[in-house]
């Protein structure tokens, strides 16, 4: 647990160093860890290597340019980079822009009673989720994995596994419930 926390805090530190000092060495270290993973993620969703490396390139360039908008109170470093890679992939694949929330939108209804004062919050949550995923029963972990990393809709998963759609939905719901329970101590 402590090791895990160390790793995750480390990435947040690297992002902050990049934001403040424009530090290329910190960026190279972040690249060394995340580029191979982002590539692996994109390739699993069924594209060739060249496309995957273009997504990696665009993702990492965006990480550099947007590092100052990273806020460790709101998201872990892995989560932040995952959402950038996900959006780059969609934009590139479908030639459309994924609609995103704008946290500064005056029309955004604010969270009631949630303070982001606890700087460790998102990082701790990320670690809890990793632990909770490891603890999931195999059939649930498999469905979560397929849903996130194989670009399957619930309908696709039902077709491929031969499970009824309702079963797929309820297993994913159950898995997510367990993941959330892993987080609950924090809130």
């Amino acid at each position: 647990m402590n090791n895990l926390r160390g790793v995750s805090e480390n990435f947040s530190n690297l992002l902050e160093t990049i934001a403040i000092d424009r530090d290329r060495e910190a960026f190279a270290r972040l690249f060394g860890y995340f580029a191979p993973r982002v590539k692996s993620y994109v390739m699993r969703l069924g594209v060739d290597e060249a496309f995957a490396e273009e997504v990696v390139q665009e993702t990492m360039v965006t990480v550099w340019h947007k590092a100052e908008s990273f806020d460790r109170r709101l998201a872990g470093a892995s989560t932040w980079i995952f959402t950038i890679a996900r959006n780059k992939r969609i934009d590139k694949l479908r030639r459309e822009v994924r609609p995103e929330l704008d946290p500064n939108d005056p029309a955004l209804v604010p969270n009631a009673g949630r303070s982001a004062d606890d700087a460790a919050e998102a990082n701790e949550a990320a670690e809890r989720i990793e632990l909770a995923i490891s603890a999931l029963p195999v059939d649930q972990a498999d469905l979560i994995y397929r849903a996130f990393y194989e670009d399957d809709t619930h309908r696709d998963i039902a077709q491929e596994t031969g499970l009824p759609l309702g079963t797929v939905k309820s297993r994913i719901r159950l898995a997510l419930k367990r993941l959330r329970e892993g987080l609950e101590d924090l809130r």
């Binding site: 790793v7 995340f34 191979p36 993973r37 982002v38 590539k39 692996s40 993620y41 390739m43 699993r44 995957a52 709101l74 998201a75 872990g76 470093a77 892995s78 989560t79 932040w80 980079i81 995952f82 959402t83 890679a85 996900r86 998102a122 949550a125 990320a126 989720i129 990793e130 995923i133 490891s134 979560i144 994995y145 996130f148 990393y149 997510l176 993941l179 959330r180 987080l183």
Partner: peptide, 17 residues
């Protein structure tokens, strides 16, 4: 946000390419 964190957590578990 929780679901996004699941995606992020899977990124750390994935076999690197």
């Amino acid at each position: 946000e929780t679901l996004d964190a699941v995606g992020g957590a899977l990124l750390s578990k994935i076999e690197p390419a």
